[in-house]
């Protein structure tokens, strides 16, 4: 009886599907039962011999069996897929506590960092950032800044002279002169850079250090404007409100010239060892541009006036981070530099 054959096949195939141990076995069973030349196909072929009403009944039975087996195969296959995926995922276990390979970011030199901060601040205030040579002429470093030969002010800036008669700039101020030569007023500029003084090196003295020079020339620039920019600069650098004071200071390229002090952060002005009991810490030199300097650079001091200032970046870095030995800054020692 064909119906019996179908039932037997169905029961038999179901059992074998359940017993299949691998996906390959399962596939073999599927081909055997449901393939084009499989058992079910054979039975289907034989159905032609049946009487029409029997054939209809057997056809129904056959389709039901086919559907049942296909579902069983799918189910079983899913089981295999799932356990295979689970096994793969399990095998892919990772110890995420292991360190990640590859380099970590390095760091910028602390002087570069503070220089960038100050550049950004002044750019936001409408200043240009200018650059000048490290080897300078005597004219730009001294003469054009109202420091003639044999002026005692040259003592304060022990100079490295070169055998060709030029010198290593002792300050960034010559960039003022170059700025005035290149651009006409109104002019707002800063010039950060490396400067040199012929000094023996110890924990607090270096022959190579960094400054930032600033200059503004316009109609009617006054001490009041200078004060505004200095207060803004130091508030941003120290990231806090600052009290300033100007007092007379002598720099031949400014008149009047000032030393600018900041009220000591440590003691708040009461006096402590850091500020040598004065309550104030000397921060930078500044002043109104000396008319002789303007005139030397072809700017009419009756029409224009300006201020200029020079700030020691190296000293600022030492203050900000409490660096006790200035030599560390140019040591190239990564134990030091990586901390910034």
């Amino acid at each position: 009886m064909i119906q019996d054959d179908i039932r037997t096949l169905e029961a038999d195939a179901c059992a074998r599907i359940g017993a299949a141990a691998t996906l390959e076995q399962l596939e073999a069973i599927r081909v055997e039962a449901l393939g084009r030349k499989g058992v079910l196909a054979q039975i289907s072929k034989e159905m032609g011999k049946l009487a029409p009403e029997e054939r209809a009944q057997a056809g129904k039975l056959l389709n039901a069996a086919k559907q049942l087996l296909e579902e069983a195969f799918e189910r079983r296959k899913r089981e295999f897929d799932e356990s295979r995926l689970a096994a793969r995922l399990d095998a892919e276990w990772l110890d995420l506590t292991l360190p990640a390979p590859g380099p970590r970011p390095g760091s910028l030199h602390p002087i570069t960092q503070i220089q960038m901060e100050i550049e950004d601040l002044f750019v936001s205030l409408g200043f240009m950032v200018l650059d000048g040579p490290e080897v300078e002429t005597e004219y730009h470093n001294f003469d054009a800044l109202n420091i003639p030969r044999d002026h005692p002010a040259r003592d304060a800036q022990d100079t490295f002279w070169l055998t060709d008669g030029n010198l290593l700039r002792t300050h960034t101020s010559p960039v003022q002169v170059r700025g005035m030569e290149r651009f006409r007023p109104p002019l707002r500029m800063i010039a950060p850079g490396r400067v040199f003084r012929n000094e023996s090196v110890d924990a607090s003295h270096e022959h190579t250090f960094y400054q930032i020079e600033g200059m503004m020339i316009d109609h009617d620039v006054s001490v009041a404007h200078l004060l505004y920019f200095m207060k803004t600069l130091l508030r941003e650098v120290f990231r806090r409100d600052v009290s300033l004071r100007l007092r007379p200071g002598f720099f031949p390229f400014v008149e009047p010239g000032f030393e600018l002090d900041v009220q000591c952060f440590i003691c708040g002005g009461a006096g402590c060892p850091v500020c040598k009991q004065s309550g104030w810490v000397e921060q930078l030199g500044c002043g109104l541009v000396n008319p002789n300097v303007l005139r030397t650079s072809g700017i009419d001091p009756e029409q224009w006036s300006g201020f200029a200032f020079g700030l020691g970046l190296t000293r600022l870095v030492m203050m900000r981070y409490g660096v006790e030995d200035i030599r560390l800054l140019q040591s190239g020692d990564l134990r030091f530099l990586r901390q910034f």
Binding site: G102, P103, R104, P105, G106, S107, L108, H109, I111, T112, E134, L168, R194, F196, T208, L329, Q330, G332, L334, L337, R338
Partner: peptide, 9 residues
Amino acid sequence: GFTEVHNYS
């Protein structure tokens, strides 16, 4: 991963 150094001139 590079760290910046400053050397003398």
